[in-house]
Each structure stands twice: as C-alpha cells, then as structure tokens.
Simulated scan of single mutants.
Amino acid sequence: MESTWLVLLSLALGLAVGAGFVTLLHVAERHGRRAAEVVNPAVPDGIDQVLDALESAGIVLDPSNNVIKTSPGALAMGLVFNQQLVHPELLDLARRVRRSGDPISDDLLLARGPFGDASMHVRVRLARLGTRYVLLLAEDRTEAFRLDEVRRDFVANVSHELKTPIASVGLLAEALVHAADEPEQVRRFANRLTTESARLGRLTQEIIELSRLQSQEAVAQPELVKIDAVVAAAVDQARIVADANHITIAVGKKSRSEVYGDERLLVVAVHNLIANAVNYSPDGSRVGVGVRRNDGAVEITVTDQGVGIPEADLDRIFERFFRVDQARSRHTGGTGLGLAIVKHVVQNHGGDIRVWSQPGKGSTFTIRLPEAPHPAPAATGDTP
C-alpha cells in the first residue's frame, strides 16, 4: 500500500514539474517575441508600399524615434542619416504627437541634409500610426517659395520701372501746356514726349512678352524654321540703329540649318542680342553674327567689341530688369528685360544660352538649339 502511494506521489510531482516547465517555456517564448519586436519592429501592413509610391518624403518612426522605414524622397531631401532624423525640430514634433495623440502640421525652414549649408522650406505633417509608430510626411516647398519671391520682386520692379516714363510723360505734358506760346519749346517737349512714350510702349510690350513666355514651358505649335531667315530678319531690324552709330553688322555665311519652333519668337531673341551688341559698342566698331551646326545643335553667335561685362555680373545678366550699366541702359532706352526674354525663348525651344565676356574687349553670346533632323535621301536604283 505504501509503495502505491509513493508511485502516485511521484507521478503527481512529475506532472507538476512538467506543467511548470511548459508554462516557463510559454512565458519565455512570449518575452522573446516582445524582445524581437523591440529589436526588429515591423511596419504595419501596406505602409511599405505607400512609402515606396510617395513622390514626397515619408518616414516611419518607432517608439525610440529610430527611422524604421523611409521613402526615397526623404533621403533625397536629406531628412534621414544613419537611420536617424537629421533635424531636432522634427524630433520635437514627433514627441508632441506621442504625448497628445493628435496629428500636427507645420511649416519649417530646415537645412538641406546633415552637411549642407543650403536651406529648404518644408511643409510637414505627423500623426500616430497604430499604437507604436509615428508617420512623418514632408513636402519640399522651396521652389514654391522662390517663385513667390520672384513674383513679388517682379511686381515691385515693374512698378518701379513704369514710374519713370509715366512721370516723365506727365511732366512733359504739363510743360507743353505752359509753353503753348513758344513753338521751339513745344517742339522740344513734344520730341521728348514721343521718346518717353515709345520707351513706355517698349517696356509694356516686353513685360507682356516675358509674362507670356514664362506661362508656358514649350512652344505650343512648333514649325520648321530656317535659322538663316531668322538671322536675316533680326539683322534687318537692328540695321537702322547700327548705321546711325556707324556700326557694321557682319553676318557669316549661310548655314542652311533648321530647327522646330516659333519663328517670331526666335527673331525676337536674336534681335535682342544684336540690339544689345549695337547699343553697348563704340561708334565705328563691328558686330559679328554667325551660325554653325555642331554635333546636333545649331549655334547662333553674336559678338561685339563693346565695353564687356564684369565677371561678377555674368551670373545675373539674364535676370529681369538687371542692368550692368544703369546710366547707359537708360540713355539707350534699355528696359532690362531683353536678355531675360532671350533666355526664356531659348529655354522654351529646348536650348540654352552661353556668354563669354571680358571688360574692355567685348562679349560673345551663343544660343544653342536642337537641330531639326534632316530626312534621309531618297533611295536610287531599281528595287530588287
């Protein structure tokens, strides 16, 4: 009897030990899973695909603010480095989201990347993603801010530039009234009034032209344009002023090259370069205009023997209303928009413009446009 009780007791002890061991295994497994989740957290289903499809920046942060998933846009913007957020401002927003549980949107001015000194305007939105994660979305609005600034500058510049001719017209009209009994004075004031009116008309027309060019990215209905005809028309328009200043416009040989584009706009661009060359050249000098075909491009070059452009100004000469020599520009009736128009015409035709200049030795402007492909010559001989 006693041996039977010993056997039953041993079995009970064995079962208890076994149950305890199994329980310990379950507990250990559960803790192991939790540890694995902390060490190697998984992004909720579908977030990977969403981030990969984003053009803007998307970042997922774990409870320790480690970056566990990021989109290519976030890397390109320099928001993430070594799996960490670069900017303390973003970390502060993430902590606020965790504390409050509410989404946050903000506009920030951040450094572009961990090492660069350039800045960027960023619109960010952060929200909780489940119970553990924070989702950060960011949109680079630097270009939008730049365009707004350019637009404001443009309006301010237009207002400033229009003030002078408008004020001059008003003063000259008043002077005409007071000089009604003096024919000589009337003629003098009338001539100046005509000059200022013409200047106001040119400025208004160029503002309209530039605004139209900036509103489109390419030529709407391109046609096949003969570059030799463009150059001839542009030279003819500048011939009267050049002859009055005894400046020779020398045109190179015909290139027989063609491009796809808008002939009228191309004539405007080339004429602006030639007119600038004439206006900034001394009397009796020479302006050269040449065209050549070079590796799939048509190059139109305008060279003068004028005053030249200081190196510090070369990067700014295509800005609207920028003038190297303010006094000379006003004397020649320049609006400060000519080269800006050239730049936009060329860009809308898929080309670029380059400049070389040296003070006292002159300048060379080169327009490069994609050459229109020539059709293959017709086959000759009998068809087999």
Rank of each mutant, 00 (worst) to 15 (best):
P377H: 00
V169H: 02
S71M: 07
L54R: 00
I166C: 04
E139F: 01
F115H: 15
L172D: 07
V38A: 13
V289G: 06
R151F: 02
V278T: 08
A275G: 00
D140A: 10
S281H: 08
L85V: 03
D106V: 02
E89D: 14
H246Y: 11
R34N: 06
Q216S: 06
A28K: 14
H87S: 10
L369I: 01
G336V: 05
D106H: 12
T383A: 05
A57K: 05
A250T: 06
R286L: 11
R152W: 07
I227F: 09
L51N: 09
Q49W: 01
L61N: 01
E196G: 01
L13V: 06
V241T: 14
Q185N: 09
K253R: 10
E182Q: 09
D262F: 02
V60K: 01
T364V: 15
G252P: 05
T131Y: 03
Q347R: 09
H178R: 11
V169Q: 14
S56W: 05
R95V: 14
I227L: 15
A111Q: 13
A242Q: 03
L11S: 04
V219A: 04
L162Q: 04
H374K: 15
E263L: 07
V278K: 01
R286N: 08
T335N: 10
N276Y: 13
D148K: 02
S71L: 08
E37C: 00
A53P: 06
E258M: 13
D243I: 03
A175G: 05
P88E: 09
R187G: 07
Q221T: 06
A57S: 13
G360H: 01
G381K: 04
E371R: 08
V355Q: 07
R95H: 04
G333Q: 12
V289K: 02
